[in-house]
Simulated assay, not measured.
Amino acid sequence: MGIGVSIFLLALGAILAFALNIDIAGIDVHVIGWILMAAGVIGLIMTALIWGRRRQVVAPAETVEYRSTEPVEYRREAPPL
Rank of each mutant, 00 (worst) to 15 (best):
G2W: 03
I3P: 13
V5L: 14
V5E: 09
I7V: 14
F8K: 01
F8P: 00
L9P: 00
A14Y: 07
A14G: 11
I15Q: 10
I15M: 09
I15D: 01
I15S: 08
L16G: 00
A17R: 15
F18R: 06
A19T: 03
L20H: 03
I22F: 15
D23L: 08
G26N: 08
I27R: 02
I27N: 01
D28R: 07
V29R: 04
H30I: 07
I32G: 00
I35R: 14
M37N: 04
A38V: 05
A38C: 07
A38G: 09
A39K: 02
G40R: 02
G40A: 00
V41Q: 09
I42V: 10
G43W: 00
L44A: 11
L44W: 02
L44G: 09
I45V: 15
M46V: 06
T47G: 08
A48H: 11
A48S: 15
A48M: 13
L49Q: 11
L49Y: 10
W51Y: 15
W51Q: 15
W51M: 14
R53S: 08
Q56L: 12
V57F: 09
A59F: 04
A59M: 01
A59V: 03
P60L: 01
A61F: 06
E62R: 11
E62G: 05
E65I: 10
Y66P: 03
S68N: 15
E70Q: 12
E70R: 12
E70Y: 10
E77H: 10
E77N: 13
P79N: 15
P79I: 12
